[in-house]
Design a protein around this nucleic acid. Structure first.
Length: 1006
RNA sequence: GCCCGAGUGGCGGAAUUGGUAGACGCGCACGACUCAAACUCGUGUUCUUACGAGUGCCGGUUCGACUCCGGCCUCGGGUACCA
């Protein structure tokens, strides 16, 4: 009886859907387990075999946990706002909601392309998702709550004393009664004001001031503007100076934008990593991205400078003058400071530059401003700068030190100014050397004539009170002294910037915001969601406003209480920063998630997805989680406890070698020669390419004759004349792609290939001696343009979902990148057929109730043990071989006993659920195997009476000696010493030492 | 440059705490079944004629190293004047 996988799989898919087999229980006494896949964006291209890799692994784990008695939450949904749908909408005029829906549910698009639909593709693979909990970020009932969370962020500030976010009301209360002097907040630079000041201000002034404190705030910031996409981009959306999507250039632009004060959470985002079970690599990426530096901020007075600009002046050490504030991680080297460098954009540059240096500085500033961010980065070796003519006063020595500007100092980091210590910093050393500035050496016995000494292990010298201290102690002492004398303090600096939160695009969440003048106000909760209005075009307006500016006030579903609605939309990461919470309670109309549900489900136990979200989604989701925790809405402050990053499945492209033949056949009729030129492709099989490569101009006569015959035959029917001559010119050998779906192994199906393109129709093929056409292979990214895309659908049709699931797992460790190769899939399919045959003979189902043998029990129990241990350490590939070994052994033992096969089905069910359900039912079970009990392995069955000792000489195994496991080390030694193979190996020598590890190994040292 | 990760047969990979390197599968070869092919089943398959050698390279620790330590090479990922 044959294994009819299609029939079986359709049957159980239907059963699971009808019975809601995978519905998670909200009020369960069972322990919970939350398994989540990273939120997919439903693209029109659909799934290729790389996408489900992580889903299969998480599904295996979810099913395994159910067998252990856990109440498992395993949901799926769509991150359905995004650029591709919008770009498509711009091209076709079709509303992105329509195309998005089609991408999920399938259909035929405007151009007549069949869209398979994500959901249909996912369903075919037999995932145990609880589909009743599906969410889509672009649905108003979902983004209502994204808007609600935005409102909480707007209505909050970060209290550094409590080290958490608080409601803005607590801040306003303080302003009203005490002003801001005592407020310790993460905020923009705000001048000190009193309660009287505050109370005297207008509503508008108060609102503008509060924006400096809000966690979601509006400000004029330098943003990454991408003209091609018509929107700003966050730092994590830019790779190598161009946009991650599309690779368009990005420029800096000052714009009024929404931002998120994620910097308030910098320290907690670093510290929180420690408790997470993530790879070190992702943790490192996040740590580096946040970029914590510990040091001191120090103020250097500018000599003889009292600018008219009061805001630049500060009072310090009794001096009222202009100060340059710098941040340094090496305050221990302060006596090595021999000059200072400001970024060209620094506010003080114009103030302090002397008349005689003015023109040089102006020229330098201009040159620097013309350089793009990218040029500045790529031009590192070229040292540039200019002297301002001004001097700073060294706070300890009182020495006058030159103030320079240079574009190696970044305006956006720290204070935009550095104290230059050329002996201890390579860039400062390079700068000083280039411009001939003095280099002081403050390191004992270190040579700095060739380069700076950047290690932190030197002893400090020539540094007054820091002399003879090692760097670490000197840093502490220097900070203490700087603080004591009042010109600076210990400080921690982060590289992380606040995240720009608005996008000038249509297909995203509208902000629940309206404006009165320039002041933003929130739409009431009762009026949420603010629904995305219809617009005539998805493009910016003529005067450069975002597409939503095309909607008139009355086009919105809410009445605008002010002058206008917000025209920006939220970025892609808004909806994905909290979606894991919504799955717990996706139908709730009153709350984003009910307290009792989030208290039960808590955070995600296992999160599987790509590593490419390290600095985006994974950082933002952690930020929002911490924020919601601070406000008491959720009981945990990390969203994803354990994460596995699956590797990319690469395509295995098929390359065909080809030359173009220019064939000119001349025909002669009574009066003239008619030359019919044609072009024909000649494809050359892989192993023939070497011989033809050299003979490029000498296509063998036999082939020429064949072509001539073919051409004559063709032409004779159309031209009434005689063949005269033929001339064939041959181009160089090139390679092109063949669609991998035309292959059987590496053999090309020539008929399919010929039909693929009209111009291949009359192509000539040079075959292997065997008569096959063999393609060359190349591993590269899986993509449509390389014709190496393999969809799961085709494989499910050909081998079944169980085979695909097992095979994707069998390919190798989940985390590793690996090329896709369908050749191996037959082996896995064969294994399932073999399993089927354990239960069936030619006449049908045959399972016996006989008592199993020791050998059969051993095969089963070692498999139970291995599978359990492997799944628990997330080694998803190795259980598949364990199943294969078990089935191979049981086949050899001709075992068809229920007592063995029934538990085997349970442990196999996470990987091959359809066949497991079918055989489980055939054994007489009436309930789904999903909630069966994972069998316990019994150590007793695994005990051996004999051990096969490998006998090694100097660590090299030479023969195997089987001895009872009960022997002591001494008994083993005497046994092995008397063995004739030992005597032969020793050849008369006396071993120096014999090592016996009972039931492991024997090793002779000779 | 700096920070991570990885290098094992023709290929994907296995070896969980240092203890038989190459499990399992593919591919390949041979054989059986068949008029034949496909399917299926069986046998073999790291290299070497052998002695032996062998987990990127060099060295170390150990009775014993794919596994631990030091130095290097190659590939992949991150980051890039971050003071």
């Amino acid at each position: 009886m044959q294994y009819q996988y299609q029939e079986i799989e359709n049957k159980w898919r239907k059963y699971w859907a009808e019975n809601k087999t995978f519905a998670a229980e909200d009020n369960s006494v069972k322990p919970k387990y939350y398994v989540l896949d990273m939120f997919p964006y439903p693209s029109g291209a659909g799934l290729h075999v790389g996408h489900p890799l992580g889903y299969i692994a998480s599904d295996v784990y979810a099913r395994y946990k159910r067998l252990l008695g856990f109440n498992v939450l395993h949901p799926m949904g769509y991150d359905s706002f995004g650029l591709p749908a919008e770009q498509y909408a711009i091209q076709t005029g079709q509303h992105p909601a329509i195309t998005t829906k089609m991408n999920i549910e399938g259909g035929v698009d405007k151009q007549g392309n069949v869209i398979p639909g994500y959901r249909n593709q996912l369903d075919k693979i037999g995932f145990s998702f609880d589909w009743d909990r599906e969410v889509r970020t672009s649905e108003p009932n979902y983004y209502k709550w994204t808007q609600w969370i935005f409102k909480q962020l707007f209505n909050s500030w970060y209290n550094k004393d409590a080290d958490k976010a608080e409601k803005i009301d607590t801040l306003i209360e303080q302003f009203k009664t005490k002003g801001n002097a005592a407020v310790n907040a993460v905020c923009d630079d705000v001048a000190v004001f009193s309660a009287t000041d505050w109370n005297s201000w207008s509503e508008e002034q108060q609102q503008q001031l509060l924006l400096n404190y809000r966690i979601a705030y509006l400000s004029d910031t330098w943003v990454n503007w991408c003209p091609a996409l018509g929107t700003v981009l966050a730092n994590d959306e830019i790779k190598d100076g161009v946009s991650e999507r599309g690779g368009h250039p990005v420029e800096q632009k000052l714009m009024r934008q929404w931002s998120m004060r994620i910097t308030a959470y910098a320290e907690r985002l670093i510290n929180g990593l420690e408790g997470l079970d993530w790879t070190d690599s992702i943790k490192d990426i996040q740590r580096n991205w946040i970029g914590k530096s510990v040091g001191a901020s120090v103020k250097f007075a500018v000599h003889n400078s009292q600018s008219s600009n009061k805001s630049l002046q500060t009072e310090n050490c009794g001096l009222k003058t202009d100060f340059i504030e710098v941040f340094t991680t090496r305050p221990d080297t302060i006596f090595g400071v021999s000059f200072m460098v400001l970024a060209p954009e620094h506010d003080l540059v114009d103030v302090i530059t002397t008349a005689e240096q003015k023109s040089e500085i102006e020229a330098y500033k201009k040159a620097a401003s013309l350089k793009s961010e990218r040029d500045r980065q790529s031009d590192i070796k070229n040292i540039t700068g200019a002297f301002t003519g001004a001097y700073a006063i060294h706070p300890f020595t009182g020495d006058k030190i030159q103030i320079w500007i240079g574009d190696y100092v970044l305006a956006t980091y720290g204070t935009g100014a550095v104290m230059a210590v050329p002996c201890g910093d390579q860039r400062d050393w390079d700068f000083a050397t280039h411009f001939g500035i003095e280099i002081k050496n403050i390191f004992k016995d270190k040579d700095i004539s060739e380069a700076a000494y950047t290690e932190k292990d030197a002893i400090i010298t020539d540094s007054d009170f820091l002399n003879n201290l090692p760097a670490k102690e000197a840093i502490k002492k220097a900070i203490a002294e700087i603080e004591k004398r009042g010109f600076g303090k210990g400080k921690t600096q982060y590289r992380l910037r606040d995240a720009v939160f608005s996008r000038q695009r249509y297909w995203g969440e509208p902000f629940p915001v309206y404006y009165k003048g320039d002041v933003p106000y929130l739409i009431n909760d009762a009026n949420l969601p603010v629904v995305l209005p219809e617009v005539d075009k998805y493009l910016p307006t003529e005067d450069g406003q975002p597409p939503l500016a095309r909607a008139k006030n009355e086009d919105w579903n809410v009445t605008c209480p002010g002058d206008r609605m917000e025209y920006n939309t939220m970025p892609g990461w808004a909806g994905s920063s909290w979606y894991f919470l919504r799955y717990m309670d996706d139908h709730n109309d009153n709350e984003f998630v009910a307290k009792e549900k989030v208290n039960y489900w808590k955070n995600v136990d296992l999160y599987i997805g790509g590593a490419e979200h390290a600095t985006g989604h994974l950082l933002y989701a952690r930020f929002w989680t911490k924020f919601l925790y601070d406000l008491g809405y959720i009981p945990f402050d990390e969203p994803f406890q354990k994460m596995i990053n699956q590797g990319m499945i690469q395509g295995n492209s098929a390359l065909v070698y080809r030359v173009m033949l220019h064939v000119e056949v001349a025909f002669k009729n009574s009066s003239e020669n008619i030359i019919i030129p044609t072009r024909r492709y000649c494809f050359i099989s892989k192993n023939k390419i070497e011989s033809y490569h050299k003979l490029i101009l000498l296509i063998p006569n036999s082939i020429q004759n064949e072509i001539i015959d073919e051409e004559i035959n063709k032409k004779e029917t159309t031209i009434n004349s005689d063949y005269n001559s033929i001339n064939i010119k041959v181009d160089n050998v090139t390679s092109g792609y063949a669609d991998v779906n035309f292959l059987n192994g590496n053999k090309l199906n020539i008929e399919q290939f010929k039909k693929w393109r009209d111009e291949f129709n009359d192509a000539y093929f040079i075959l292997e001696d065997s008569g096959d056409f063999i393609v060359d292979r190349e591993v590269e990214k899986m993509s449509k343009s390389k014709y190496n895309v393999q969809t799961p659908d085709e494989l499910v049709d050909k081998y079944g979902a169980d085979t695909l699931r097992c095979y994707e797992m069998f390919l190798g460790p989940l985390e590793q990148h690996k090329p896709w190769d369908t050749q191996g899939i037959t082996g896995v399919h064969g294994f399932l057929k073999k399993l089927w045959r354990l239960f069936h003979d030619d006449n049908g189902f045959v399972v016996s109730d006989e008592t199993p043998t020791q050998e059969e029990l051993k095969s089963l129990h070692k498999t139970i043990k291995k599978v359990k241990e492997d799944i628990e350490r997330f080694s998803f590939n190795t259980p598949v071989s364990a199943y294969m070994i078990c089935v191979n052994e049981l086949t050899a033992q001709k075992c068809n006993k229920r007592a063995i096969l029934e538990p085997l089905l349970i442990i196999l069910a996470p990987y091959a659920p359809h066949i497991a359900e079918e055989l489980w039912a055939k054994l007489g079970n009436t309930e789904s195997i999903t909630y069966a009990v994972f069998p316990k392995y019994n150590e007793a069955y695994l005990v051996e009476s004999n051990h096969k000792y490998p006998v090694s000489f100097n660590g090299k195994m030479r023969f195997i000696l089987e001895l009872p496991t009960t022997l002591t080390a001494a008994e083993v030694e005497s046994e092995v010493m008397g063995n004739e193979q030992t005597i032969k190996q020793l050849g008369g020598q006396t071993p120096k030492k014999v090592i016996v590890v009972p039931n492991k190994i024997i090793n002779f040292v000779v």
